Simulated scan of single mutants.
Amino acid sequence: MKNCPPQFEADAVALYESRPEATIRPVAADLGVNPETLRNWVRAAGASRPRGRRAEASVEPPTALGAQNA
């Protein structure tokens, strides 16, 4: 698909956002588009999701031992 309709692009971004566990690559494969194309659509739409393991880690205050080491 060289030129996709705007509705398809919007639906693709919505699908990506609805799958928080999925990355760009499998969603793009499901849709039959290049991963970079989907990535560009997501960026253009201003969509954002937490990325990687850092986003999953909770932020806890440092312990007394951690404060001494800092």
Rank of each mutant, 00 (worst) to 15 (best):
G32P: 14
R51V: 02
N34F: 01
T63C: 00
R25E: 09
E36C: 15
A14I: 00
G46Y: 00
A14R: 07
N40R: 15
V42D: 11
W41H: 08
A55H: 10
A55R: 07
V59N: 01
F8P: 04
N69C: 05
A67G: 00
A12H: 02
F8H: 10
S18E: 08
E17I: 07
V27A: 06
S18M: 09
D30C: 00
P6E: 11
G66E: 11
A57L: 11
E60Q: 05
G52Y: 11
P26W: 07
N34D: 08
E56V: 01
E60M: 04
G66Q: 10
M1V: 06
D11Y: 09
E21H: 13
P35D: 02
P50T: 01
E56W: 02
R19A: 03
E60G: 02
N40P: 05
A10Y: 05
V42E: 04
Q68I: 12
L65C: 05
I24Y: 12
A57P: 00
R51I: 02
R25M: 09
M1C: 01
R39M: 10
R25K: 14
T23H: 10
R51C: 08
T37I: 12
E60D: 04
R49I: 12
R51P: 06
G46E: 00
R54L: 11
E9Q: 15
V27S: 06
A55F: 03
E56D: 01
R53T: 03
A47T: 10
N40K: 15
V13G: 12
N34S: 01
A12P: 03
T37W: 01
E60A: 09
V42N: 10
I24E: 14
E17Y: 01
W41G: 14
L15F: 09
P61Y: 08
E60K: 04
A29S: 07
T37S: 04
T37D: 08
I24G: 12
D11V: 13
G66D: 05
N69D: 00
R49E: 07
P6A: 15
S48P: 09
V27T: 05
R43Q: 07
G66P: 01
N40C: 14
R49D: 06
P62T: 07
G46D: 03
N3Y: 09
A64V: 02
V42R: 15
R43S: 09
A44R: 12
R19L: 13
P61S: 06
R19G: 01
A28P: 09
V13E: 14
A22R: 12
P61N: 04
A44K: 11
E9C: 14
P35Y: 02
A22P: 00
Q7F: 01
V59A: 10
V27I: 03
V33D: 13
D30Q: 03
S18D: 07
R53F: 14
R53H: 06
A22S: 11
R51G: 04
N3P: 06
E17R: 13
Q68K: 13
M1L: 04
A44M: 09
E60Y: 00
V27C: 13
G66A: 10
Y16I: 05
A44N: 05
C4E: 13
A14M: 06
